[in-house]
């Protein structure tokens, strides 16, 4: 009896970590754009969904194998990211932040409608190359999709952490996030920084979108999962890349636990709101997030 419960708990935690790592990826997209431009990109859920549908279409309609389709989708999202920045966001430089955030909401709605018009409100099963047989870690079952999602998420994050730590462009992006005026003075091209951060964010969110569509079903509600990454990002502190990653995993685990233990008490639905309740609680205790820094004060 006892070991059964422990087993249940472990199962919830493990699948929570794997899904959470995908949330971390999306949260990374949020944080990147926020750090570079102070803009909260609320269209990221839709960008994610667009990537997933695009990849799905390549696989089913054009019969392209999974991995090439995946790579083509990345290229597509990179181009989309640059295009969005050029056409819609660059003219908005210098306008109030709130106006730009509203534009991202509008963008999200437009994308969602376009996807609805093209693919309709159906549920699709994403054709993945992942084996249906679960992988057994001791007695805990992990599906291949979950495992690959986690491996992918961790790889992407390591790549970006290295990018921010070791490349001139990465350091320049952090410098711009820190103090835009001085970044100008150092000759850092702020336009380039903004473009690169949009590019990275759209690419990362399509990766997340494809894996989420593999884990769940592909339908018009996928964008909502993107919104779950917002609590993850805010929780970790919007300006902390490491915080976003930990926040994502934390949200994944906690919502799984809430779903596993509380759902039957309330008759379902707890899992969906858990992320936002956790966010509320953390905001009350630490308004700047778990890892966010307000400003360094010298003593």
């Amino acid at each position: 009896m006892f070991s059964d419960q422990l087993h249940f708990l472990a199962q919830l935690v493990v699948s929570g970590i794997t899904v959470g790592s995908v949330y971390s990826l999306i949260a990374l997209g949020f944080v990147l754009i926020y750090k570079a431009t102070d803009v909260l990109n609320l269209a990221i859920g839709e960008l994610m969904m667009l990537g997933a549908y695009f990849c799905f279409n390549l696989i089913t309609t054009y019969k392209i194998p999974y991995i090439p389709a995946f790579l083509i989708t990345l290229v597509f999202s990179a181009i989309l990211g640059i295009l969005l920045e050029r056409v819609i966001l660059r003219p908005m430089i210098g306008e109030p932040i709130l106006a730009i955030v509203m534009i991202t909401i509008g963008l999200g709605t437009v994308f969602r409608s376009i996807i609805g018009m093209i693919w309709g409100p159906l549920n699709y099963v994403f054709p993945g190359p992942f084996s249906e047989e679960p992988l057994m870690l001791g007695t805990i079952a992990v599906s291949h999709v979950h495992l690959w999602a986690m491996i992918m998420a961790i790889t992407v994050m390591i790549v970006f952490l290295a990018f921010f730590k070791f490349t001139t462009m990465g350091i320049g992006m952090r410098a711009t996030a820190d103090d835009q005026d001085i970044a100008f003075l150092m000759g850092i091209s702020v336009k380039k920084v903004v473009a690169v951060s949009w590019l990275i964010a759209t690419v990362v969110s399509s990766i997340a979108g494809i894996f989420l569509a593999n884990i769940n079903l592909l339908n018009l509600n996928l964008y909502f999962i993107g919104l779950k990454a917002l609590p993850a990002a805010v929780m970790g502190g919007l300006d902390s890349i490491a915080g976003a990653m930990i926040g994502g995993v934390l949200i994944g685990v906690l919502e799984n636990l809430a779903g596993g233990y509380l759902d039957h008490l309330f008759g379902g639905g707890v899992k969906e709101v858990a992320a936002f309740i956790i966010l509320l609680l953390i905001m009350m205790i630490r308004p700047y997030g778990l890892f966010g820094t307000k400003e360094i004060e010298r003593v």
Partner: peptide, 17 residues
């Protein structure tokens, strides 16, 4: 006005952007 969140080393390197 230095970049507070960057290390000393990174501050100097970013000058060569």
């Amino acid at each position: 006005r230095v970049f507070d969140d960057l290390t000393v080393d990174e501050n100097i390197r970013v000058g060569a952007f």
